[in-house]
Amino acid sequence: MQTSSVLITLALPALALTSAACTTEAWYEGMKYSAESRCRQQPPSELQACRDRLNKENHATYERQRADLK
């Protein structure tokens, strides 16, 4: 089960990035999914803090911050 989880973790962002209809939202969600998988590998005492850091902003907020940097 662990191996299939790792494969899915690696394949989803790659699929999102290489898709012909790839959008920044798909990329963003794929990266969040990968980060969530890494959070689940943390010790139980660190899991919630990791998820809290991960879920601070949505895609719209990310886009606004990205536009401000340009």
Rank of each mutant, 00 (worst) to 15 (best):
66 R>F: 04
19 S>A: 15
57 E>A: 07
59 H>S: 03
64 R>I: 04
37 S>F: 06
36 E>D: 07
14 A>C: 02
34 S>D: 00
39 C>F: 05
66 R>K: 14
70 K>M: 04
20 A>I: 08
64 R>T: 08
27 W>E: 13
29 E>L: 15
13 P>K: 06
43 P>K: 09
65 Q>D: 08
52 D>S: 12
27 W>V: 14
21 A>C: 04
3 T>V: 11
20 A>H: 07
10 L>V: 10
57 E>M: 09
22 C>H: 09
64 R>Y: 00
64 R>C: 01
30 G>H: 02
2 Q>Y: 09
40 R>Q: 14
15 L>S: 08
56 K>H: 00
1 M>C: 07
41 Q>K: 13
36 E>Q: 08
58 N>C: 02
60 A>M: 03
20 A>R: 12
16 A>K: 03
48 Q>N: 10
17 L>E: 06
69 L>K: 03
20 A>F: 07
39 C>G: 10
30 G>R: 02
26 A>F: 05
36 E>I: 03
62 Y>D: 00
20 A>E: 09
21 A>R: 05
23 T>E: 05
60 A>L: 06
5 S>I: 09
66 R>D: 01
57 E>L: 05
11 A>H: 05
48 Q>G: 00
45 S>Q: 15
17 L>C: 04
54 L>M: 03
62 Y>V: 01
29 E>C: 08
28 Y>Q: 02
30 G>P: 01
26 A>C: 04
53 R>K: 12
40 R>I: 04
11 A>G: 07
38 R>Q: 11
44 P>S: 15
40 R>E: 14
17 L>R: 06
35 A>S: 09
38 R>D: 07
1 M>P: 00
39 C>E: 10
47 L>K: 15
37 S>C: 08
26 A>Q: 11
55 N>E: 10
30 G>N: 02
